[in-house]
Every structure is written in C-alpha cells, then in structure tokens.
Design a protein around this nucleic acid. Sequence first.
DNA 1: ATTTTTTATTGTAAATTTGCGATGAATAAA
DNA 2: TTTATTCATCGCAAATTTACAATAAAAAAT
Lengths: 110, 110
Amino acid sequence: MGVTKSEKFTDAQNQVARMAKALAHPARIAIIEYLFSIDSCVCGDIVNEIGLAQPTISQHLKELKTVGLIKGSVEGTSVCYCIDHQNWLLMKNLLSPILNLDAATLNKCC
Amino acid sequence: MGVTKSEKFTDAQNQVARMAKALAHPARIAIIEYLFSIDSCVCGDIVNEIGLAQPTISQHLKELKTVGLIKGSVEGTSVCYCIDHQNWLLMKNLLSPILNLDAATLNKCC
DNA sequence: ATTTTTTATTGTAAATTTGCGATGAATAAA
DNA sequence: TTTATTCATCGCAAATTTACAATAAAAAAT
C-alpha cells in the first residue's frame, strides 16, 4: 500500500512522525545545518552547497517548507530561505518528550 | 528512483536521517511509547495495543530492531521486546545537536 | 502425536519517495 | 525586446514503504 493508517493513532503520534519524516533524509539535514550555519536568509547557494540537482533540492526545500521548518521569500529572481525559528521550537517541543522518555523510566529490564 | 544518494553526505548526516526515519511512522512511535510505559520486556501484547495486523506490527518491530532502538529475546513461543536503553541514548545524542541548533544561533533574520 | 499459540516470513498490491531532465514562470540584465 | 538567471513544476523511472493475507516455524499445551 504505502499508505499510513493515521486514523489509528493519536494526533500527537502523527505529528511526531510527520516531523521525524521531515528530518528523515540526509539532504534535508544538510540543508537545515547549512541554514543554521548561515543564520540568515540564503538566496541561491543551497543548490551549490548540497550535491544534488536543482529540482531535487527544490523538492526537499518544499517538504521542509510544508512542515513549516523553513520559510522562503521571493527576492527578485532568487528565493531566500531560512529557518522558521518559531516552528523549529514547536518541533523541538514535540520531539523532546519522546527522546526523553528514557529519563522517566526505571530501566527494569534487559 | 526512490534511492537516497548517501555518498553525497557525511556519516553524521546519514545517521541522523536514519534514526529520524525509524521514528517517522506513528505506529513505531506508538510502539516505543508503549514499551516505555511498560518499562519492561513485553511479550505479545504489542499487536493488541496497536490497531494494525500482526505482520505489519512484526515489520515495524523489525525496523526498530534493525536500527537498534529495541531488542527482542525469545521466550518460549513468544518474543519479548523492550527498549534498548543504551542505543536509545546514542540516538538521543545523535539527534539532540540538530534539535538544539537554534540555541546556538543569533536569529538574525526573518 | 496432534493441536494450539505466537511470531516471522513470503508474496503481493498500492502509495510514496527520491532523483533528475525538460520545461515553464518571473524577474533582472543587456 | 531579447537574453540571462533563478527557482518551481511536470513527467517519468526506479526504489522504497506500508499493509495484509497466507503460510511457515517453533515451542507449549493437550
């Protein structure tokens, strides 16, 4: 099928999975790291920075934009992308509870 | 294609993406949350807990086991699964630097 | 020895993902 | 106005993911 049965899970579980999915490709990790390293809007450079074809990068940027982790604004012929700091924080607050689940456990087994 | 060009990225980027991918499905999030909530090995119950068919759950468990986040030990006819706390920590240490990138930025733009 | 229980595996179908060439759209430069 | 430049979109191919029925495997219970 390739289709996820979202209705079987809670909103929170679906949201966590959705965000994890956005981070589930090295090119998107590379893009995010680059945007943070620049710490300002980037016009152009992204395609040169990552070693993939322009349409492929454009697609990855679109996915990141769709989940809200980055935002882009048109600047002449080019488009400036940057981290959406507000949504980044929301994503962190969504994932952190999962990552820190082990801190709340007593490690009884295994 | 559907094939990721891993060789274009650093080991760290590929590892982060690999872990994020393991978390990129609500069923796997649900399984992990359940295993933490039990905080001990679980034999059987998982299929009843998540509303998906047994082969589907088995497949998700396999994926989580492959990346090392859980481990299973045969116990008679059943198999006991639990969180691999050591690898869970490794995963956390892999993802946290990415999630916390915003803490190191000056938020110059947007 | 046979049946039951539990989990893994196989096979299959459909959707999704990844990647890129070709092309389009929109603005800047000449 | 014509020609770059930059990015998005379309269309395609191939791989991967998700889901499950059917079946196998392995141990327990009868």
